[in-house]
Simulated assay, not measured.
Amino acid sequence: MTGTTDFSALPVIDIGPLIHGSDDDRAVVAAQLGDAARNVGFMYLTGTGIGQRLVDSLRAAAARFFALPFDEKMAVYIGNSTNHRGYVPEGEEVFAGGGVDKKEAYDLSLELPADDPRYLAGNPLLGPNQWPDLPGFTEAVSAYYSAVFELGRTVLRGFALALGRPATYFDHYVTEPPSQLRLLHYPEDLDAVDRLGIGAHTDYECFTILKPTAPGLEVLNGAGVWIDAPPVPDAFVLNIGDMLELWTNGEFVATTHRVRKVTSERYSFPLFFSVDYDTVVEPLPEFVTPERPARAPLIAGEHLHAQTAQSFTYLRNRLAEGDLRLPDGALALSSFGHTARLGA
């Protein structure tokens, strides 16, 4: 059974050949990506071509934003938006079975104009960002977003090869996706003892490309043991999300993870790489067998919105008040990954 190994560390994969290697080189890297996706669900990526200067600029911008007075951050409160963009104060986000998160965040996604017809029609995830009035912030964050989003396109082509498909197989699903970048800030908390920074969860998109600044991330292996995943110099962390688990009918695993034991200040920058909102995701036929029947299909954007609506307080309030409803067939939180398989 895939995705249940008792791994004790994350594999490190040099993806440089995906960017500038031969067909044979790309095939080797694709095989490594596929093996990691099947047996671990998490990996470190090196050779990305993204320089430290871009990361440093993002961190500096994030530090300036989170240092603002609370009222100034709340001027771009995520609950003021109609497409889930903006500042997330501590306690706003609660995962399944979790307590209040010890973190704050700023969330953005692919910038679309305010006159985009999908935004005007009320799409809950598409449209413009809600930017703070902070000189240089938009430029630094946008530059990082663009670079890591393009890295995501490259990695998705590697996964296509790993699945025996042409490298461009998924390209037409990635035109204007709601791929979200989060700037996460964990304040210093000297009293933190085994306190969850982020509750155990899987990510809702295809995969996540993460740059953390300090330890804290833990990954659940197939034996039910939490494994440390500390930062590795010049590397990004990548983890499989719900949509690649669904596309492969469980062959790739969206591994459950969490953040804990955060006592010193920590930043973390995940880019949740998604496909277009209306993409119908269903198991590829080669992964469907009598022993492993096909899982029910999902619409990528609806799944992302439904999971988000169940974990953010302002959206849960709208659900309770009847101003918002979940899409038909919406899954409960923790419906993917090891915890779902174990019934946890």
Score class of each variant (00 low, 15 high):
residue 105 A to R: 14
residue 61 A to I: 05
residue 160 A to H: 05
residue 143 A to M: 04
residue 147 A to F: 04
residue 183 L to P: 00
residue 150 E to S: 13
residue 96 A to K: 06
residue 173 Y to A: 09
residue 69 P to F: 05
residue 128 P to E: 07
residue 176 E to H: 09
residue 162 A to R: 15
residue 138 T to F: 05
residue 168 T to D: 15
residue 63 A to P: 14
residue 93 E to H: 05
residue 182 R to G: 01
residue 104 E to P: 06
residue 118 R to Q: 13
residue 125 L to R: 07
residue 140 A to G: 07
residue 190 L to C: 06
residue 72 E to G: 07
residue 89 P to I: 01
residue 85 R to K: 15
residue 176 E to Y: 01
residue 128 P to W: 08
residue 187 P to R: 00
residue 101 D to F: 02
residue 171 D to M: 04
residue 158 G to R: 15
residue 80 N to L: 06
residue 159 F to N: 05
residue 74 M to W: 02
residue 151 L to D: 04
residue 72 E to I: 04
residue 175 T to M: 15
residue 82 T to N: 06
residue 107 D to V: 05
residue 98 G to K: 03
residue 108 L to S: 13
residue 183 L to H: 00
residue 150 E to F: 04
residue 121 A to W: 04
residue 104 E to T: 00
residue 112 L to G: 06
residue 109 S to Q: 14
residue 91 G to M: 09
residue 61 A to E: 00
residue 109 S to H: 10
residue 167 A to T: 02
residue 98 G to I: 01
residue 176 E to G: 00
residue 143 A to F: 02
residue 103 K to P: 01
residue 65 F to T: 07
residue 86 G to S: 09
residue 91 G to S: 14
residue 107 D to P: 15
residue 134 L to C: 00
residue 186 Y to F: 12
residue 128 P to V: 05
residue 169 Y to F: 15
residue 80 N to F: 00
residue 139 E to W: 01
residue 162 A to Y: 13
residue 195 R to N: 01
residue 156 L to W: 12
residue 138 T to Q: 10
residue 66 F to D: 09
residue 122 G to E: 12
residue 91 G to C: 06
residue 168 T to F: 02
residue 175 T to N: 14
residue 60 A to V: 00
